[in-house]
Design a protein around this nucleic acid. Structure first.
Lengths: 183, 183
DNA sequence: AAAGTAAAATAACAAGTGTTATATGCACAG
DNA sequence: CTGTGCATATAACACTTGTTATTTTACTTT
């Protein structure tokens, strides 16, 4: 019959995704992916119709990666939004290019911040209910304030302008939650 | 003697700066600048050694633009950092590409957030002293917290995820300042 | 008016992009 | 063992980028 397949969809996607993590989305080109995967550009266009389709797949992979990252992040915080905030800020620091792609960059694939945060995990809804159960009168408004704060820390982390430790960050998030509740 | 100069440094710089405001830094190319300035690419390379030098000049212009923007912004807020915050957030919304270039993008020209905020205006030092005079025990710490919040709102504004009015924003900044003071 | 000279326009080069046409190689059916 | 058909490699095309070489243009001085 036919020659055996050497380069798989997974090979290509994994390579492109790793490159996005390390060098950013803009540096993922057909020839660079091929070089890193150890093949010519041909296998890429066998498994994907064009580069845009590959980049769609990379974006989807980034979404899943963030969801998994959040799922596995330890729940040490006690106040609502603190665990989500901790994971989000740490993700921004450790995966600056993925964070940029998902939450900052202006590309046609980008979903809204709320879609991304609510993925299959339903994080925001859960946290808002938690705040309501704890007696917070306007949990939606509190989420907005907390999220402005959390997003600010994360964006600083992404650009290297944020250098508090995990412990300091958790303390900051819990205290600011309480401050926002009483305001 | 020689032929009269038609295309000046100012023509080129203004064109490139306008393009940055409207389409972003990444879309400023020699041919596009030339087309918009109504000339060939040649005058660009007469007045600038190469594109990198032009982009340096555009970056410097963006810095000045932000300083001027802040200088002219009305001082309606009463709490420390509120006026700086208002101007910063509005700038992010109105000049998303300039904001990105100055405060987000990862380019070799980029200065630290604090350098940019302290330009010739000395904004941060002034505001911190204001907080101290008003009896704030640790104004530096308070600035950090306020700035995380302000930067968060600005980054959301940049990406279109922030839609509070000026009045609501000022209220939010003043109330969060007071909340942070008591925390 | 003629000439010289700097500015601008035109055209070209090399490098890098996505994409496609063509050639090669290989595993299995016969 | 031999040919068929798919996977891969090679090579090429069209386009965009920065940059430079060459040509044309027009102003100022003589």
């Amino acid at each position: 019959m036919a020659r055996k397949e050497i380069i798989t969809v997974q090979n290509i996607l994994d390579t492109a995704f790793t490159m996005t993590r390390e060098e950013g989305f803009a540096n993922v080109t057909a020839r660079k992916v091929a070089a890193k995967a150890g093949c010519s550009t041909q296998p890429i266009f066998r498994v994907y119709k064009n580069m845009d389709e590959l980049l769609d797949a990379v974006y989807a992979q980034a979404e899943t990666f963030f969801q998994d990252y959040y799922s596995l992040y330890p729940r040490t915080g006690k106040t609502p939004f603190s665990n989500l905030g901790m994971a989000y800020i740490k993700f921004a620091r450790e995966e600056r290019y993925l964070f940029e792609l998902l939450f900052i960059a202006d590309n046609p694939r980008k979903k809204s911040m709320y879609e991304l945060l609510n993925g299959k995990v339903g994080n925001v809804v859960y946290e808002i209910n938690l705040a309501r159960v704890q007696g917070c009168p306007d949990p939606g408004d509190l989420f907005m304030k907390m999220w402005i704060f959390i997003h600010g820390a994360a964006c600083m982390a992404m650009t290297g302008d944020y250098d508090l430790s995990d412990r300091e960050t958790l303390d900051l998030l819990e205290r600011s939650y309480n401050a926002f509740v009483g305001m």
